[in-house]
Computed example of a mutant assay.
Amino acid sequence: MGFLWLSIAIISEVVGSSLLKLTNGFKRIGPTIGVALGYGVAFYTLSLSLKELPLGIAYAIWAGVGTALTALIGIIFYKETIHFKKALGILFIIGGVVLLNNGM
């Protein structure tokens, strides 16, 4: 159940982070509410995952996967550029998460 809560936390955080760009400095109410809900659900479900998962592992996975997915959303939906260093960085993040999971 811990990894289910962690997955929900990651998805919620990615949604909240991805909506930040649309808030226009928190001047647009719809995206602003989405950011608040996304982060609220993310932290709540992250706390639930910590009942079963070690803090260091859960937080590293949450932050790493969230960062990689948010970067991919920026590339896909916001047409941000991708170059070798960005792609390599995302691969390193994913590799780090894999190593952490194998070390559990």
Rank of each mutant, 00 (worst) to 15 (best):
L69W: 12
A42M: 04
V97Y: 03
G16H: 01
L20M: 13
K51N: 14
A63P: 00
K85C: 13
K51I: 02
F92A: 15
L19W: 03
S47T: 06
G40M: 01
L19Y: 00
E13A: 14
I93Q: 11
L48V: 00
L53A: 03
V35P: 01
I76T: 14
S49D: 05
G56L: 04
I94C: 10
H83D: 09
P31M: 10
A68E: 03
G25Y: 07
L50P: 06
F92S: 15
L20I: 12
L48R: 02
I75D: 09
Y59I: 08
L72Q: 00
L72G: 10
L99K: 07
G96C: 10
I33P: 03
G34K: 05
F84D: 12
L53D: 01
Y39L: 08
V41I: 07
L55C: 05
G66I: 06
T67W: 00
V15A: 15
I57K: 05
G56I: 03
N101K: 12
G89T: 10
T32K: 07
Y59W: 10
G89A: 13
G95I: 10
T81H: 14
S49F: 00
A36E: 03
A63L: 15
I90C: 07
W62F: 09
V98I: 15
K27Q: 12
R28M: 10
V65N: 11
K51L: 11
F84T: 14
Y59V: 09
T32G: 09
T32M: 01
L48S: 00
S12A: 15
V15E: 04
G74L: 14
G30W: 12
L22P: 01
I57Q: 06
G56F: 00
F43D: 01
L50C: 04
H83T: 13
T70C: 15
I90S: 07
T32L: 05
G38M: 03
E52K: 13
L91K: 09
A71E: 08
I73M: 14
I61F: 11
T32Y: 04
L55K: 06
T32V: 09
A42F: 02
L99F: 07
K27P: 08
T67F: 10
S12V: 03
G89D: 02
I61K: 00
I61C: 07
F77C: 06
V14T: 06
A71Y: 06
Y39A: 02
G30V: 12
K86V: 15
T70W: 06
L69N: 05
V41M: 02
G38R: 02
L91D: 11
K79S: 11
L22R: 14
I57V: 09
N24T: 11
P31K: 02
L48T: 00
L37V: 05
G66P: 06
A63N: 11
A36F: 05
A68P: 08
V35M: 02
K51E: 12
Y39Q: 06
I76E: 08
P31V: 01
I93M: 14
V35C: 02
I73P: 08
A58V: 03
I93A: 14
A71P: 07
G25R: 07
G89M: 10
S12R: 03
S17F: 01
I75K: 13
L46C: 04
L91H: 09
K85Q: 10
Y59K: 00
L100I: 14
G64W: 04
I76A: 11
A63Y: 01
E52R: 11
K51Y: 08
